Simulated assay, not measured.
Amino acid sequence: MIPASWYLILSAVLFSLGVIGFLIKRSLITVFMSIELMLNAVNLSFVTFAHQWHSVKGQIFVFFVMMVAAAEAAVGLAIIIAIFRARATLNVDQVDLMKL
């Protein structure tokens, strides 16, 4: 049996990697993937606590977070494609939608 603390440590490491990727990387795709990594790290901790406390509430919450993440992925990728078509770059520093 794997202790719950290992799952929480893994969740913290994944969330930290997502934050580092969000803060350091300059590509919109990498930033987008970092946000998804952070969402999955939080989902892992929700499932860990739900299993530890023998409750279904955490798993239900994870289901809703996954639905929101799927919608965010569809809309986010559409926005990224539109930005790339308009600006021909995905660099966060060079994407300035208020300027023509």
Rank of each mutant, 00 (worst) to 15 (best):
L28A: 10
H54Y: 08
A50M: 12
V19H: 01
F15S: 10
M66N: 13
R26A: 03
I9Q: 05
V95A: 04
A73F: 07
K99P: 06
S34E: 07
F32S: 06
F49N: 13
M1D: 11
G18K: 00
F49P: 14
G76D: 03
A73V: 03
A86V: 06
W6D: 03
K57T: 14
F32R: 02
F84K: 01
L100T: 10
I35W: 00
S16W: 08
Q59I: 07
P3S: 05
R26K: 15
F46H: 03
S27Y: 08
L8N: 00
I35Y: 01
N43P: 00
T30G: 06
S45G: 14
L14T: 07
D96R: 00
S55H: 01
S27W: 02
M33I: 09
A41K: 09
A70Y: 11
S11W: 00
L14V: 11
Q59S: 12
R26I: 06
I79K: 01
W6V: 11
L10P: 01
E36G: 10
F84H: 08
A69R: 04
S55L: 13
A71G: 12
F64P: 02
Q52I: 02
A74N: 10
S11N: 00
S11C: 06
F22V: 06
L37G: 03
L23D: 02
F61Y: 12
R87W: 07
S34W: 04
I60L: 04
M67Q: 07
A73D: 01
S16Y: 06
A78C: 06
A4Q: 08
V62F: 04
A74M: 13
M66V: 14
V95Q: 04
L23N: 06
V92F: 15
I60G: 04
S45R: 11
H54W: 09
M38T: 04
M38W: 03
L44Y: 09
H54F: 05
M38P: 02
I20Y: 06
A4E: 14
I9Y: 05
I29M: 11
A88K: 15
V56T: 14
M1F: 14
R85C: 00
V92L: 15
S34K: 07
I81C: 05
E36N: 10
V42S: 09
Q52E: 12
